[in-house]
Amino acid sequence: MSPSMPYLEIAPAPRVSSGLGTRRLMWEVLVTLIPVVATAAYYFGAAALLLIAATTTATMGTEWLLTRGSGKGSTRLGDGSAALSGILLGLCLPPSTPVWMALLGGVVAIILGKAVWGGLGFNLFNPALVGRAFLQAAFPLALTTWTAPQQGFWTLAPSVLAPPFMRAATDATTTATPLGLAKFAGQLVAPESLIFGGTAGSLGETSALVLILCGLWLGLRRVFDWRLPVATLLTAALFSGVLQLWGGVAPGPLFTLSSGGLLLGAVYMVTDPVTTPLTPRGMWIFGVGVGFLVVLIRTWGGLAEGVMYAILLMNAVTPLINRLTQPRTFGTGMRST
C-alpha cells in the first residue's frame, strides 16, 4: 500500500509521512473546485458567483469569530476548511436562493456543523450538508424552486436579492430538474445535456463531465481514498440498473449517475476525511450505504433528490461502522474485544 494514501491507516509502525497535511489537502480540493464554480457561473450567471460568495463569506466570517473567541490562539482560517465548506454549500443551492438564506446557511453550517463539535476534525456531520439540510427544513419552498439556466450572465432571479423573510416583487420562470421530470412526469432528459451541463438544478451539479474530471484528478493525486466514491457510484449504478431491469421503476444507471447531486456528493462530500469511516472496510460500507440510500430515496421517496440525506444518514452511523470494522490487534484472537 502506498505511503501517500491520505487516510489514517490504522496499522502498526513503521509509518512514513507523506507531508500531506490538512492545509495542503484542503487547498488541493479548493483548486479543483475552480472549474466547478466556473461551470456554475457559465450556466447560471452572476447569481452563482453571488451565492457562492455569500456562503463562503458567511462560513469564513463565522469560523473567524468563533475560533478567535475560543481562546485557542490564532484563528483557523488558514487551513481552508471553512472556505471549502462555504463553496460546497453554495454549490448545492438552487440558483434562485435568496442571498440572505445563503448567508444564514453558511452561519448554521459552521456553528451547528462544526463549532459545537469542537472544530475541524471532531465534527461527525459534513458542515456544508448540515447547513443545506437546515435550509431545506426551514425554507422548503425556496430550496426546491429551480430556475432555468442560460438566461444571460447578468440575469438574476428576482428572489436572489429579496429582503429577508419577504417575497420577491416578481416571480422568476421556474422549471423542473431532470430528476423531477423523471420522477413526477416520467420524462428523461437527453444524456448530452446531463454530461456537458445546462440542465436545471443546484449550482454545482449541472455538468457531469467537469465533476468526473475533477474527481479523477483528486483520486489520481491521492487526495481522497478512491474506495469511497467508487463504492458509492458503483452501488447507485448497480441498484438502479437492477430496478430498471425489474419493471423499469428507476431510470437506469447512466441517468442516475449523471443527474442530480450524486457526482458532486460522491466527489466532494462522500470523500470528506473527517466524517467518513477510517478503515478500508468501513469505507466500502459507507459508500455502499450512500449509493443504496440515494437510489431508495429517489425511487420511492417523497423527494426527487436524496444525496444530501443519504450522506448525512451515513455520517450518523459512521461511529458505529468504525466500531464494527475495527481491525483486530496483532497477535490476539480473530475477534477484537
Partner: peptide, 21 residues
Amino acid sequence: FFIAGILSMAFMGFAGLFHGS
C-alpha cells in the same frame, strides 16, 4: 439536543417514502 436536531434533519430524507407507489 444539537445532535438530536441534526439526526432529525437527516431522517427528514425518508419523509414520504413508499407513499407514491
